[in-house]
Design a protein around this nucleic acid. Structure first.
Lengths: 109, 109
DNA sequence: TTTAAATACCTTGCATAACAAAGTAGTATT
DNA sequence: AATACTACTTTGTTATGCAAGGTATTTAAA
């Protein structure tokens, strides 16, 4: 039974990930590990194998850019930042998210 | 650009589908076409090829049951109804849904 | 009575994407 | 030099939404 819940829960979160990445980078540029950390703080567990391909995808879609930056401790970090295109996508996604919330309310009645 | 939005939107809705089916059947038993109709009313477009396998899956998980019923116009209909197990899953999903909504709020800050 | 339209259920094959797991590589510490 | 740590990347598996096509029943028109 519990695995059914976990499965649906992870299903639910799946579609929201792309939106969350954009929201996070809209506040401040960040590198992968720090994004994972912020998501974890907000109760959304994401692993590297999920995030890296997603960042690359969004970068290829022109929603993000990145630059390398040396770290004081450890290897260089790839800092991602949102583009104008990414920002304008957020506006549309904000609307889409509101629609979804209201859809659930409508169905629940 | 528009296809990116549509893609993410459909991604978002994906995970919510199972939850929506349970919510709908929690109110009243229904057959596939009527479920599709209700989802459409709530702004969530779903096609048969998506819904049928999902209903069968949920039935196999013991969340739903069904019975056949003659129709006054057309072939017999398979009416699905929620089980006790399905109902108790809804309680957990309600919580999960609230968590997700609050996750988005946290991330947006 | 055949044909067509409408309704309903089901299946196949494809594309996408999340994830586990393993790999590569730079930096710091012992 | 060896180990630990941090960070980025890739591969293979699995799940699933969906387009498209298929089957079956009923009703109504030709």
């Amino acid at each position: 039974m519990e695995h059914i819940v976990d499965n649906i829960k992870s299903q639910m979160r799946k579609g929201l990930l792309e939106y969350c990445i954009l929201l996070i980078l809209n506040k401040k540029e960040a590198y992968a590990s720090s994004i994972i950390e912020e998501l974890k703080q907000a109760n959304m567990i994401v692993v590297e194998g999920t995030l890296y391909p997603l960042l690359i995808r969004q970068k290829n879609q022109g929603l993000l850019n990145y630059r390398w930056e040396e770290s004081t401790q450890g290897p260089p970090r790839k800092y991602y930042m949102i583009t104008d295109k990414g920002r304008s996508l957020i506006s549309e996604m904000d609307l889409a998210w509101q629609e979804i919330v209201s859809t659930i309310e409508t169905i629940r009645k």
